[in-house]
């Protein structure tokens, strides 16, 4: 199981348990758990609706690619802990990740 702690836009915290071997990114996973992320671009790192702040587990994440960094540059609320959930592939390596969602909802 992969464990991810998620704080939504209202401050509610939930511990998610996700089976390994699911071929999804974190944005798609959160949508599957019925988080109402808008995800305008569908996962191309172009809209930043799935903007999140990483509270724990930053070092276990894959490095952000150029497009994600360009898009984060357009967010007024981006910080050094910002990532786009759509660019984080679900894997055992990110077990223990803790994030706060600060992007746009549906």
């Amino acid at each position: 199981m992969i464990h991810i702690k998620v704080e939504d836009n209202k401050g509610e915290v939930q511990d998610l348990e996700i089976p390994e071997g699911i071929n999804l990114n974190l944005m798609e996973t959160l949508k599957a758990f019925e988080y109402p992320l808008r995800a305008t671009c569908g996962g191309m790192a172009l809209c930043s609706d799935c903007h999140c702040q990483v509270l724990e587990g930053w070092d276990n994440l894959p490095e952000a690619q150029e497009q994600e960094l360009i898009t984060l540059d357009t967010r007024p609320d981006a910080t050094g802990a910002s990532r786009l959930a759509c660019q984080i592939k679900l894997s055992e390596a990110i077990d223990g990740l803790s994030i706060r969602l600060i992007g746009e909802n549906e």
Binding site: I70, A78, T79
Partner: peptide, 9 residues
């Protein structure tokens, strides 16, 4: 004014 220290545009 920019949050980062580089520009990726």
């Amino acid at each position: 004014v920019h949050r980062g220290d580089t520009f990726r545009g």
